[in-house]
Amino acid sequence: MKYLIRKIMFLLLTIWAALTINFILPRLMPGNPAEVMVAKFRGKITPQAMNALKIAFGIDVHQNIFVQYFRYIQNTMKGNFGISITYFPMPVKSMLAQSIPWTLGLVGTSTIIAFTLGTLLGIKSAWKRNNFLADMSVPIGLFLKSIPYFWLALLFLYLFSFKLSWFPLAGGSSGKFIGFKEVLDILYHSILPAFTIVVAASGGWILTMRNNMISVLSEDYITFAAAKGLKEKEIMYKYGARNAILPNMTGFAMALGFIIGGSLLTEMVFSYPGVGYILYQAVESLDYPLMQAIFLFISLAVLVANFLADVTYVLLDPRVRSGGKE
């Protein structure tokens, strides 16, 4: 219970930190660049909306900074993130609502596939040393972890879409179909971005799972299980992998939090209409309200996922429960 309370406190603390970073950033920058942006809105939006915008970015507000801060928190709690410049006069809220499902669908599915694939490869490579798959998995995992993944996206786009014309060059759907055909069309558009994410993300899972598995396999109960004459598969999965996967489950819960913010650049390269792509457009047109809301959302997702990961860990590993230490 003490552990849980500590984790809840930390969750609240980090959410507060993310909110505060968002508030402080525009105020820290010399010559507040948001001013130019707010000037663009003059006369285009209602005085109330203008006022909210000024409070959010600290532009010629003659209020005490604490009052401003309080107002800002209030507005954010209400889900009032202001109006997007890029998609004027759309509110930021609806831009987020439009793009998040795309990202959840694409990155969510690919994260689960990458985790499953990477974990299986990690188990196999730790089990069978001196085997081609095992020997190659470490360098390949290392390689995939240390290259710029947007470049991998460019490479695949060039090869599979431009050269071979197997897949579309951009977008999340062609918008020409309705009903079942539309679903197929969306799936077709997502194959190459998903493939890129799976390739880029599984490297890390291979390496961590392999490392965990190797240290578990050196435990005495594995030797004992082998001595008892249990089947190889049984030792590998029930005795080895089951214990080795424990730390990875936390990692997986974390990765689920990174779904919204984890593949920003892949979406940019594929012009996939998710969060990453609208962030790119927000950056290009210095659309600060949209940018900040995206940052806040990504942070929130990660923080909540991390909290859930901690909770899962308690459920999975009784040692944490009794020890109360991290």
Binding site: L25, G261, L264, Q292, F295, V302, L303
Partner: peptide, 19 residues
């Protein structure tokens, strides 16, 4: 706190603010 707040989005936002 710094470990958990997602790096790249934060970096992008800060970099976008730097004139």
């Amino acid at each position: 706190i710094f470990l958990i707040i997602p790096g790249l989005p934060l970096i992008i936002v800060i970099a976008a603010y730097i004139a």
